[in-house]
């Protein structure tokens, strides 16, 4: 498989994730965009592992998935904690730390 094609696909998914983080206002969709970015990175790891015949890329992709699970769980806790205090999920209203 052509490695440049897989790099481009992974980069496009990563850039879509960046665009979602920058443009959407819903906190949950922003977290989903971060998952998209992690998936784009994983795609690059797998493509290079296949290209080089080296299994280390797959191992790093496995660790990326583990970190994504931890991130989703902590985000869940943060959202519940935020829901107790405020009633909104618009990130434009999250201005508690504005100086």
């Amino acid at each position: 498989m052509n490695i440049n094609f897989m790099i481009i696909v992974g980069s496009i998914i990563f850039l879509i994730g960046i665009l979602g983080v920058l443009l959407r206002r819903n906190l949950i969709i922003i977290l989903m965009s971060i998952e998209l970015m992690l998936n784009g990175v994983n795609l690059n790891f797998i493509a290079f592992a296949n290209y080089l015949g080296d299994v280390k890329g797959q191992i790093f992709a496995l660790f990326v998935i583990a970190v994504a699970v931890a991130e989703a769980a902590v985000a869940f806790g943060l959202i519940i904690a935020f829901m107790r205090n405020k009633d909104t999920f618009n990130i434009d209203d999250m201005t508690l730390m504005k100086g």
Binding site: V69, A73, V74, F76, G77, L78, I80, A81
Partner: peptide, 14 residues
């Protein structure tokens, strides 16, 4: 360890 830490942090936060 990271997963256990994330679990404890989630329980603490929620």
């Amino acid at each position: 360890l990271l997963l256990i830490g994330a679990m404890i942090a989630t329980i603490y936060l929620a």
